[in-house]
Amino acid sequence: MNARIEHLETSGTFSLDGGTWEVDNNVWIIGDDQEVIVIDPAHDAEAVQKQVAGRTVVAILLTHAHDDHIRQVKDVQERIGGQIHLNWDDKVLWEQVYEGTEPDVKLTDGDTFTVAGATLRAIHTPGHSPGSTCFLAEGLEAHPVLFSGDTLFQGGPGATGRSYSSFETIIESIRTKLFSLPAETTVNTGHGPSTTIGEESPKLQEWIDRGH
């Protein structure tokens, strides 16, 4: 297994529904010394470029199109190359930032990407946004690794209190598509600390009872 995971935390703002909040985002880079995949290059294009350090970019993968995750992606692409992949169910969110444009590739459930001997598979998990997508990596570690974006965090599901989101939908996505993964699966999130499927799955009924 030659591929490794690199983590970069960047800071900026998230804006939707007339409000703006300060946020710290996780940027994930998967690959080796020659090639990488970049997931959610948020806020700081220069920092992402420095981390990539001239390696070939196989793809830029977006877990969803909230502005904190995508506002810098065109600048990032100009600096490091690679095609931008996004599930087009998030069109309305993308166009709030990049009106009249489209991502290079419209991501679909089950799409696969290979980098440095590792394979990532797209899992469509709507709820936080209509097009929210997680990426399941095999061949990185002894157990699977999930890049969950804002669908699943340590301690609960992603927020669903704003436009284009649904608590019932995110719970169904997590229950049927994520909690069927092995308990030892590492979950690398869009914000905050990582967790595992085994840590989070016992809490499902609690989340449902609590609602949103």
Rank of each mutant, 00 (worst) to 15 (best):
M1I: 13
R4N: 13
R4D: 11
I5T: 08
E6L: 14
H7T: 11
H7P: 08
H7V: 13
T10P: 01
T13W: 11
T13K: 06
F14Y: 15
S15M: 07
L16R: 13
D17W: 00
D17E: 14
G19A: 14
N25L: 08
N26I: 09
W28E: 00
W28N: 10
I29V: 15
I30L: 12
G31C: 07
G31M: 03
D32Q: 02
D32V: 14
E35C: 09
V38H: 00
H43G: 02
A45F: 09
V48C: 07
V48H: 08
Q49E: 14
R55Q: 11
I60N: 04
L61I: 07
L61P: 04
L62G: 02
L62P: 05
H64K: 08
A65Y: 07
D67R: 12
H69N: 11
H69F: 10
I70E: 04
D75S: 15
V76S: 03
Q77S: 09
Q77D: 03
E78P: 09
R79T: 08
R79F: 00
I80A: 04
G81F: 04
G82M: 00
G82P: 05
Q83H: 09
I84V: 12
I84D: 06
L86I: 07
D90L: 01
K91G: 04
W94R: 02
E95Q: 15
Q96D: 11
V97N: 02
Y98L: 08
E99P: 13
E102G: 03
E102D: 12
D104Y: 00
V105C: 09
D109T: 07
A116D: 09
G117A: 04
A122Q: 05
T125H: 09
H128I: 04
S129F: 01
P130S: 11
G131K: 11
G131V: 00
S132D: 13
F135N: 00
F135H: 10
G139C: 10
L140W: 07
A142V: 08
V145K: 03
L146F: 01
S148G: 14
S148A: 15
T151Y: 07
T151C: 10
G155W: 05
G156H: 08
G156F: 02
P157T: 04
P157G: 04
A159E: 15
G161A: 13
G161K: 06
S163Y: 00
S165M: 12
F167Q: 06
E168K: 13
E168V: 04
S173E: 02
T176V: 10
L178C: 01
L181G: 11
E184D: 13
T185V: 02
T185E: 08
T186I: 12
T189R: 10
T189L: 03
G192V: 01
S194T: 05
T195H: 06
I197K: 02
G198E: 05
G198Q: 03
E200P: 05
E200A: 07
S201E: 15
K203E: 07
K203S: 14
Q205Y: 10
D209W: 02
R210L: 12
R210T: 05
G211V: 10
H212M: 13
H212E: 14
